[in-house]
Amino acid sequence: GATAVSEWTEYKTADGKTYYYNNRTLESTWEKPQELK
């Protein structure tokens, strides 16, 4: 079936920290989303 993983994109900030952005909800988070675990 369809999965929600594709909504999240992993980015890195200029200082090398990783964060996650959800293209559907426009939410961003420092925590790894449940969908990616």
Rank of each mutant, 00 (worst) to 15 (best):
G1N: 14
G1P: 14
G1I: 14
G1R: 12
G1M: 12
G1W: 09
G1D: 12
A2P: 10
A2D: 13
A2Y: 08
A2K: 13
A2E: 13
A2T: 14
A2Q: 13
T3W: 04
T3Q: 14
T3G: 14
T3E: 13
T3R: 10
T3M: 13
T3P: 13
T3I: 13
T3S: 11
T3K: 10
A4E: 11
A4F: 08
A4H: 14
A4R: 12
A4Y: 05
A4L: 12
A4Q: 14
A4D: 12
A4K: 13
A4T: 15
A4S: 13
A4I: 12
V5Y: 14
V5H: 11
V5A: 12
V5L: 13
V5Q: 14
V5G: 14
V5K: 15
V5N: 12
V5D: 12
V5F: 12
V5E: 11
V5M: 11
S6N: 12
S6M: 09
S6Y: 08
S6T: 11
S6H: 10
S6V: 09
S6W: 08
S6I: 08
S6E: 10
S6F: 08
S6G: 14
E7K: 03
E7Y: 06
E7R: 03
E7H: 08
E7L: 05
E7N: 07
E7T: 06
E7S: 05
W8K: 01
W8L: 01
W8F: 02
W8Y: 03
W8I: 01
W8N: 00
W8G: 00
W8E: 00
W8P: 00
W8R: 00
W8H: 00
W8T: 00
T9Q: 10
T9W: 07
T9R: 11
T9N: 07
T9L: 10
T9G: 07
T9A: 10
T9M: 12
T9Y: 09
E10P: 04
E10N: 02
E10A: 06
E10I: 07
E10L: 04
E10H: 03
E10F: 03
Y11C: 15
K12D: 03
K12I: 13
K12P: 03
K12W: 06
K12H: 08
K12L: 10
K12N: 05
K12Q: 11
K12Y: 09
K12F: 09
K12M: 11
K12V: 14
T13Y: 04
T13D: 14
T13G: 09
T13W: 03
T13F: 03
T13R: 03
T13M: 05
T13I: 02
T13E: 03
T13V: 02
A14P: 11
A14H: 10
A14F: 04
A14W: 06
A14K: 09
A14M: 08
A14L: 09
A14D: 10
A14E: 11
D15C: 12
D15E: 08
D15W: 05
D15G: 08
D15K: 05
D15T: 08
D15I: 03
D15Q: 07
D15N: 08
D15V: 03
D15M: 04
G16W: 01
G16R: 01
G16E: 03
G16M: 02
G16D: 04
G16T: 00
G16I: 00
G16Y: 01
G16L: 01
K17W: 05
K17D: 08
K17A: 06
K17I: 07
K17S: 06
T18N: 05
T18Y: 08
T18H: 06
T18R: 05
T18E: 05
T18W: 05
T18K: 07
T18P: 06
T18I: 14
Y20I: 00
Y20M: 00
Y20R: 00
Y20N: 00
Y20S: 00
Y20P: 01
Y20A: 00
Y20G: 00
Y21L: 08
Y21C: 09
Y21I: 12
Y21K: 08
Y21T: 07
Y21S: 03
Y21R: 07
Y21D: 02
N22T: 00
N22I: 00
N22M: 00
N22F: 00
N22W: 01
N22D: 02
N22G: 00
N22K: 01
N22S: 03
N23D: 07
N23Q: 11
N23M: 11
N23R: 09
N23T: 14
N23P: 06
N23E: 11
N23H: 14
N23K: 12
R24C: 15
R24Y: 12
R24N: 10
R24W: 08
R24V: 15
R24T: 11
R24M: 11
R24K: 13
R24Q: 10
R24H: 09
T25S: 03
T25M: 01
T25P: 00
T25K: 02
T25W: 02
T25Q: 01
T25A: 01
T25E: 01
L26G: 15
L26A: 11
L26Y: 11
L26R: 15
L26W: 05
L26V: 02
L26S: 11
E27P: 00
E27N: 04
E27F: 02
E27M: 05
E27H: 03
E27W: 01
E27R: 04
E27V: 06
S28I: 15
S28W: 15
S28E: 11
S28K: 14
S28P: 03
S28Y: 14
S28R: 12
S28Q: 11
S28G: 12
S28T: 15
T29Y: 06
T29R: 10
T29F: 06
T29V: 12
T29A: 07
T29N: 04
T29E: 03
T29M: 07
T29K: 07
T29W: 05
T29P: 01
T29L: 06
T29H: 07
E31F: 07
E31M: 05
E31Y: 06
E31S: 04
E31Q: 08
E31A: 05
E31H: 06
E31G: 04
K32N: 06
K32Y: 05
K32L: 07
K32S: 04
K32W: 04
K32P: 09
K32M: 10
K32G: 03
K32D: 05
K32F: 05
P33A: 02
P33E: 03
P33Y: 03
P33S: 01
P33F: 02
P33N: 03
Q34W: 09
Q34N: 13
Q34V: 13
Q34M: 13
Q34R: 06
Q34D: 15
Q34P: 15
Q34T: 11
E35A: 08
E35G: 10
E35Q: 07
E35H: 07
E35D: 12
E35V: 04
E35M: 05
E35N: 08
E35L: 04
E35T: 04
E35S: 09
L36M: 10
L36G: 09
L36Q: 07
L36K: 06
L36S: 09
L36Y: 10
L36V: 09
L36T: 07
L36E: 08
K37Y: 13
K37I: 14
K37G: 15
K37L: 15
K37H: 14
K37C: 15
K37R: 13
K37V: 15
K37N: 14
